[in-house]
Amino acid sequence: MTSPNRPRSFQEIILRLQSYWADKGCAVLQPYDMEVGAGTFHPATTLRALGGRSWAAAYVQPSRRPTDGRYGENPNRLQHYYQYQVIIKPSPPDLQELYLGSLRAIGLDPMVHDVRFVEDDWESPTLGAWGLGWEVWCDGMEVSQFTYFQQVGGHDCRPVSGELTYGLERLAMYVLGVEHVMDMPFNDPDSPIALSYGDIFRQTEQEYSRWNFDQADTEMLFQHFKDAEAECARILAAAENDSAGRRIPMAHPAYDQAIKASHLFNLLDARGVISVTERQAYIGRVRALAKGCADLFLTTDAAGTAA
């Protein structure tokens, strides 16, 4: 890394992305307060990609993938990690240039590096969503996912949202020249109390890996899955008007339950108690929930189509 404006820590990269996208006019949101597998699950992306209203948001989203846990030993794999997510609707014509600007902002100069857009179509079976785009390569490494959403929850996206997802740890390790994620400086390494990624997350990776793989009570998780599914269905079926006669459909509370079901499914999967054939059925059940939430959201003010 020869760039003079090279960041010195994980958090500096996050801060630079935040201020870059804030400068470009995005609302800088905070992470969603629920366990999700990826930044896409944040309602700011999934639900806001639906309907006609313009939208521009950027946020960090802690993401959990129980099956990726490696007790903190693997240099690249974590069951809990961070994604940086940008979503703009309608997708602006210069989105690629805006994206390249964000790479410059964190010290990756495309005149020195080899930045490439390599076909990678995105699909989320659990969200009933798909889009076309690329994975962005920098010197042979995938640093982002770049997608033009075509459908979410089974609905055509009109207008189309442009979505950018940065895998923050991997990107930061590359920018900072770190070989093992746990060695990465989290705050400035010259701080009085310098903290590495490992200082903060090594122990939690161990604890969650053990719980995810060996300890999580599967009976209970199955029950929670059923509960979330039932509650979601109940919310979706509830009368649109409250007792005072105000029309308040509850798309977001219902969607929370769909997110919950999705994460519970991931936990069960990590415990190895879902067979290959059952897998498809579970994914279908979560998709049905997400679809119901999308249907309902489209009738609301936030979708720009409410009565």
């Binding site: 997708s91 602006p92 076309l132 033009y148 075509q150 009109r158 207008p159 189309v160 442009g162």
Partner: peptide
């Protein structure tokens, strides 16, 4: 496979 982008209706492989 083709796609739409922005607020338009035209389809092309990418914008």
């Amino acid at each position: 496979k083709s796609m739409r982008w922005g607020a338009g209706n035209l389809r092309w492989v990418r914008p």
